[in-house]
């Protein structure tokens, strides 16, 4: 089976703006293949270049070396088959909720009436019907994430790129959102690359967990299939013995890298 998204031998080296001799390699020789309908989480210590890798997959960042292939085609500019959910606030603050949700349709030239209709339907699906006229600053953090989710999914992308989308939320809201994400995802299984530093979140959501080493020059050091049954409830599944077993196994491999990443940060 050909992968939907293939990142092959990707390296990203950043040059310092002030001093060209000062360079920082965020990602080194990383290969990541995402199959159709597969939910893959990428975990790693903070500052290991997870976001860099996702930006490469999105086409927002050109890798120094390596190739990106989307559905068998080499990626030139922006990855139009992908939706991206950012870690920080990405909604347009000058558009209300409904206008934010339909922004992608508007950019693609969908007729206004049809766009608004589909936007309303999506607001309903993410539990925000009646909030269409509110502006982002009038919504709670969790609601803004729902809007961002609808904004991405309304375009029906084949690949979802998610960069710690729920990390800013409190634990309860977060688990609610994770369950909703799984429910939306199971409806028409898209390929997902989910970035997180939270191993529990990664295991409870994914089919596969890829562990990155600590930066600089981070690269995958482990690839674990998660054979937990679906549908899952992210809060309940964490208590099952099999989950704990998987968690212990991956954590053993990850622990050393986390400590290394922590030491790196202390040095800076």
């Amino acid at each position: 089976m050909t992968p939907v998204l293939a990142l092959e031998r990707i390296s990203c080296t950043f040059l310092s703006r002030d001093d060209a001799s000062e360079r920082y390699t965020a990602v080194d020789d990383t290969t990541l293949l995402i199959g159709e309908g597969e939910f893959v989480s990428v975990v790693g210590p903070t500052g290991c270049g997870k976001t860099t890798l996702l930006n490469v997959a999105a086409g927002l960042l050109k890798p120094s070396t390596g190739t990106v292939t989307v559905l068998g085609r080499s990626l030139g500019g922006i990855n139009t088959r992908a939706g991206y959910m950012f870690q920080t606030e990405a909604l347009m603050p000058w558009r209300n909720t409904l206008e934010n949700v339909v922004a992608g349709l508007e950019f693609r030239g969908v007729a206004r009436e049809e766009a608004l209709e589909r936007g309303d339907a999506w607001l309903k699906r993410v539990g925000l019907s009646g909030f269409g006229k509110r502006y982002p600053h009038q919504l709670s953090g969790g609601m803004r994430k729902r809007v961002a989710l609808a904004q991405m999914l309304i375009l029906n992308p084949q690949i979802l790129l998610m960069d710690e989308p729920f990390s800013a939320l409190d634990v309860q809201t977060r688990q609610l959102m994770e369950n909703e994400l799984l429910e939306l995802w199971s409806a028409d299984r898209k390929s997902v690359v989910f970035i997180t530093h939270d191993l529990e979140e990664a295991i409870s959501l994914s089919d596969r967990v890829v562990v990155l080493s600590a930066g600089p020059a981070s690269h995958p050091i482990g690839d674990y299939a998660i054979d937990l049954p679906r549908p899952r409830d992210v809060a309940e599944i964490r208590l099952t013995p099999h989950f704990i077993e998987i968690h212990a196994k991956i954590w053993r491999a990850m622990k050393e890298e986390v400590l290394k990443g922590y030491a790196q940060q202390q040095k800076q």
Binding site: A58, L60, I78, N79, T80, A82, G83, Y84, F86, A90, L91, M92, A103, G104, F107, R108, Q151, L155
Partner: peptide, 8 residues
């Protein structure tokens, strides 16, 4: 970046 990903 978000607007670009949405196809602007």
């Amino acid at each position: 970046a978000n607007a670009r990903m949405l196809g602007a």
